[in-house]
Simulated scan of single mutants.
Amino acid sequence: MSPDATVDQVVRFVDLAGVLANAVLGGIAARTARLDVVGFVVLAILSGLGGGMIRDALLQAGPVVALTDPLYLVMALIGAGIAFIIPFRGRMPRLVLALLDALSLGCWANVGAQKTLDLGLTVIPALLMGALTAVGGSTVRDVMLNKKPAIFGGNTLSATSALLSSAITVGFYAVNSQWLGSIAAIVSATALSLLARRFDWGLPTEVHPARRAKQASTWLRGWWSGIGNRGRTGDHEQDRQDAPHRPSTVDDPKEQST
């Protein structure tokens, strides 16, 4: 078996495992929102298959893969059923889900970028489709729940990890080494996502240049006035030291009496 075929099988396995893991995450979100069975199924499908469905619809390169390959939809339904039965309150189940989520993030970004390049599109669309494939499902799920999408703030750096995976895929695709690029993209994105989750990494939220400039100018004025105050204070100290040695300008009372 050729290395490309082996990598394709591994990628497909990770892809399906990612569908299952993200479908379970969608079901957990439905449980948190206290939805019924229909809510579990809808959020599981959107979370597990939403990114790939949006990608295939935008690329217009044939039918949506999630609809032509029944195993994808089956895995999403299994994930919904698992989340409906099991509450996933233990530490170990959540760690396994976090690992599968990170793996699927890198895998989906790699698959999305590679499919875009196979269609003859350029680097920018490949990066966009890779990131959209990876985070599209979770974004749609959060919007359906009227929540701020996790890609706009969080400690997993989902969008950053997806862009990293897409960029590595594009780089290795340019040198005609897709199988090595798939491995490097998945491992790098998974590592970055897990490290961000472990050490609570995040991106900057906002910058206040006007306030910083005001603070700098206030400090400068205070520094400059401090020099002036020290100078004036030094002059007063010198005057007090020189005062006993200066001749008195008041007449002596004894001389006035004589």
Rank of each mutant, 00 (worst) to 15 (best):
L121I: 04
N146A: 11
S158Y: 15
T32K: 14
L46P: 00
I86W: 14
A109K: 00
L67P: 04
L67D: 08
S166R: 06
M1R: 04
L117H: 02
R31Q: 15
S188W: 02
G81Y: 08
C107A: 15
Q178T: 10
V65I: 09
A174W: 10
R246F: 06
A150Y: 03
H208F: 11
Q178W: 10
M1T: 06
G171N: 03
R89K: 14
R141W: 07
P87R: 03
T160G: 10
T249W: 05
G181S: 07
M129E: 05
N110C: 14
M53T: 15
H236T: 12
A162Y: 01
G112I: 08
F199D: 01
G137P: 01
L128D: 02
F40P: 04
R94A: 13
T258N: 13
D8V: 07
F13Q: 03
L71S: 07
I85A: 10
V19C: 07
L194M: 09
I86D: 06
V19D: 00
S2Y: 02
F13A: 12
S2W: 02
D8Y: 13
A196K: 09
G81H: 04
G81I: 01
R246N: 13
P244S: 07
W219L: 07
T249M: 13
R12V: 04
W179Y: 14
L145W: 04
R94C: 06
A150L: 14
G39H: 07
